[in-house]
C-alpha cells in the first residue's frame, strides 16, 4: 500500500475514479455496509453539527438581521453595507493581512528548515528537539502573551535591556503605532511553529531513501538533495501547513486582547478582535455576524488560491 504523506491532495484522475465508483452504489447501501464506521463517526458528527455547523449557519442568518434580545428584525444587506463602509473594518483588515503575509511564510519556512535540521540528527536528539519545539504549542497563548508583554516592557523588559547593552535608547514597543503591530508580528514569528515541525518530520520519514541514494550517485550534494527532493515531496504538507497557519493568522485574537487591546489608536486592531468588540461590547450581533461572514469569505478565497498554487499535481 502506498503511503500518502499527511495532508496529501488526491490527483485529478483519482478524484474522478472515486466519484464514478461511488455512483455505482447508493449512499444508503454504502452506509449499511460500513455501519460500524458511521457509528464511530456519529458522536463527532453530532458534536460538529451542534457546535460548528449550526452556529455557522446561524451566524449567516444573523448577518441579515438587526439583532435584538427579544425578537430580531430582518435588515437585508444593511450589515454588509456597514461592514464595507467601516473605516475600522478596513484598518483591521489591513493589519490582519500584514500580520498574515509576514507570519505565515516565516512560520512555514522556519518549520521546514528546523524539521530538516532535526531530521538529520540521531533518534534521541530528534525526540528532544521534537518535544522542545512542540512545547509552545501546548502552552496557553494567554501565558505566552503575558511573558511577551513583560519582554516588551519599556522600563525593565528583556528587549530594551539588551538594546541598552549596545547603547540604544529603549523602545516603547507596544505604545507606538509604528512598532506595536511589528512587535506582535515578531512575537508570532519567534514562537516556534511546533505543529509544522512535527508534521514535516512525519512527512520526511515517508520519503523513500532510494531517491536520496540515486541523487547521491548522480553527484547531488546535501543542499541540492534537500532542494530537489525533500522540498518538492513535502509540497502536500506545505500546502496543509500554509492553509492551517493562514486560517490561524487571520483569526489572531489572544495576543491582541492581552497585549494591546487593538491600540494605540487602531494600530493593532485585527478582524477577530473587531468582531469580538462589535458582538460583546456593542452587542451588535447582526453586524458582528456579517463581519464574520466576510472574514470567512476572505479566508476561503485565500485558501482556494493557496490550494491552486501549491496543490500536488503530476
Amino acid at each position: 500500500m502506498t503511503q500518502v504523506p499527511m495532508g496529501a491532495v488526491p490527483k485529478k484522475g483519482e478524484e474522478k475514479l472515486k466519484i464514478r465508483k461511488r455512483s455505482n452504489q447508493s449512499i444508503w447501501k454504502q452506509m449499511k455496509k460500513n455501519y460500524a464506521a458511521y457509528l464511530f463517526l456519529l458522536p463527532k458528527l453530532v458534536l460538529f453539527t451542534l457546535f460548528v455547523a449550526i452556529p455557522v449557519l446561524w451566524a449567516f442568518v444573523l448577518s441579515f438581521q438587526e439583532y435584538k434580545i427579544f425578537g430580531s428584525e430582518f435588515a437585508g444587506l444593511q450589515n454588509y453595507i456597514t461592514v464595507f463602509q467601516s473605516a475600522a473594518f478596513m484598518a483591521a483588515l489591513k493589519n490582519t493581512l500584514l500580520f498574515t503575509i509576514v507570519t505565515v511564510p516565516f512560520g512555514v519556512i522556519t518549520a521546514l528548515i528546523g524539521a530538516s535540521m532535526i531530521f538529520a540528527l540521531g533518534k534521541v536528539s530528534q525526540s528532544f528537539f521534537r518535544s522542545a519545539f512542540y512545547l509552545p504549542t501546548v502552552t496557553s497563548m494567554v501565558i505566552i502573551a503575558m511573558v511577551w508583554r513583560w519582554m516588551y516592557n519599556y522600563d525593565f523588559g528583556l528587549f530594551n535591556y539588551i538594546l541598552g547593552w549596545f547603547g540604544v535608547d529603549p523602545i516603547n514597543w507596544l505604545g507606538q503605532s509604528s512598532t506595536a503591530l511589528w512587535a506582535l508580528i515578531i512575537m508570532q514569528c519567534l514562537i516556534p511553529f511546533g505543529v509544522g515541525i512535527i508534521m514535516y518530520l512525519a512527512s520526511m520519514g515517508s520519503i523513500s531513501n532510494a531517491l536520496y541514494e540515486a541523487a547521491k550517485i548522480d553527484g547531488a550534494g546535501s543542499l541540492k538533495q534537500w532542494w530537489h527532493i525533500t522540498v518538492p515531496l513535502l509540497k502536500p504538507t506545505t500546502l496543509y501547513l500554509v492553509l492551517l497557519s493562514t486560517i490561524g493568522s487571520f483569526q489572531v485574537f489572544t495576543q491582541i486582547i492581552m497585549m494591546t487591546g487593538g491600540g494605540p489608536g487602531n494600530a493593532t486592531e485585527t478582524l477577530v478582535h473587531l468582531i469580538y468588540k462589535t458582538g460583546f461590547r456593542d452587542f451588535e450581533f447582526g453586524l458582528a455576524a456579517a463581519q464574520s461572514v466576510v472574514l470567512f469569505v476572505i479566508i476561503l478565497i485565500f485558501s482556494v488560491i493557496q490550494f491552486r498554487v501549491l496543490r500536488h499535481d503530476e
Binding site: 519599556y154 522600563d155 507596544l174 505604545g175 487591546g261 491600540g263 494605540p264
Partner: peptide, 8 residues
C-alpha cells in the same frame, strides 16, 4: 512623566 504615560 515616564514614556509609558498615556499607555494601556
Amino acid at each position: 512623566a515616564p514614556e509609558t504615560h498615556g499607555g494601556n
